[in-house]
Design a protein around this nucleic acid. Structure first.
Length: 272
DNA sequence: AGAGGTACCTGGCAGC
DNA sequence: TGCTGCCAGGTACCTC
């Protein structure tokens, strides 16, 4: 479900409720996420104030002076803001209650997400230490991609989905960015030119910004923190469209498994 | 070092 | 209606 735009959309939805809020309770109904949820350690945050929130890659960080809650939504997770005492549904694993009035609720059917407590220095944590640059940051551009790719014999799509290269480009937006840049997902990363990487970097930024503006992509079950769907699905050019006509020419969109993930492209528009 | 495969888990859907 | 098999937005970790 969530790629970078969905995580960013989620953070924007919950941030107003967390800003300077006092954590008044943390309820863990099911600690069996990707890694065991440290219920007791999290309880140590009760009574303390949220000092800030941020996103790094697809992680949401909720800072307090006692430690940082590190949240990941995995494939199927979502966070929503609800009134305290809102009824509990299936897969509602964790509630973070703030100001004794609202709860930030994690629902994650597949339980690939995580909720950990990290002590400073937060960015030295194993999960954060080796991440590549943010795609929307100034240090991510075509020259960087070109330089990183010189020793890489993997498919271009696998390369841009590698979190050590750049974070936040998941399966949907990888296909979309490659389409926008006119590049074949199966091209070998180290054989792609600097000029093409410049186009690709711009395409990645544009796609992600557009998706954030639309509130993310809702395929089956993604909703923003207020329960509304994202509207980027209408703007998808290739993802999920195999067998349909390309919006840019008369060709039929194809799909191919690359790195165990379904990949969509136009054989005519993407020759690079 | 880099490439490729496996594992974690539930739910929805197509096909029988 | 119910069963089976397949697919799904992520990514750490293992082996080669």
């Amino acid at each position: 479900m969530p790629e970078l735009p969905e995580v960013e959309t989620t953070l924007r939805g919950i941030e107003p409720y967390l800003r300077n809020a006092i954590i008044t309770n943390i309820e863990v109904r099911n600690p069996n996420l990707r890694w065991p949820v440290p219920t007791k350690k999290l309880a140590g945050l009760i009574g303390h104030e949220v000092s800030g929130t941020e996103r790094r890659a697809k992680y949401i960080l909720v800072h307090t002076l006692q430690g940082t809650i590190l949240l990941h939504l995995g494939m199927s997770g979502s966070l929503s803001v609800l009134d305290k005492n809102h009824s509990v549904a299936k897969h509602d694993h964790i509630d973070i209650e703030v100001n004794a009035s609202k709860i930030i609720r994690l629902n994650d059917p597949r339980r690939f997400g995580c909720c950990l407590l990290v002590k400073p220095p937060v960015f030295s944590h194993k999960l954060l230490a080796n991440l590549g640059p943010e795609p929307l940051g100034a240090d991510f551009d075509g020259d960087y991609l070109f330089q990183q790719s010189r020793s890489r014999a993997v498919c271009l799509k696998t390369f841009i989905m590698d979190g050590k290269v750049v974070v936040g480009v998941g399966n949907i937006y990888a296909s979309e960015a490659l389409y926008r840049a006119g590049l074949r997902p199966t091209s070998i990363a180290k054989r792609v030119s600097r000029v093409k990487y410049r186009n690709l970097a711009v395409a990645i930024k544009d796609i992600l910004k557009g998706a954030i503006r639309a509130g993310g992509t809702t395929l089956n079950d993604f909703t923003q923190a207020d329960g509304k769907p994202g509207y980027f699905k209408q703007e998808l050019q290739v993802y999920g469209r195999s067998g349909e006509v390309c919006h840019g020419c008369d060709s039929i969109i194809k799909s191919k498994i690359i790195g165990q993930r379904n990949t969509f492209y136009c054989p005519s528009c993407q020759k690079g």
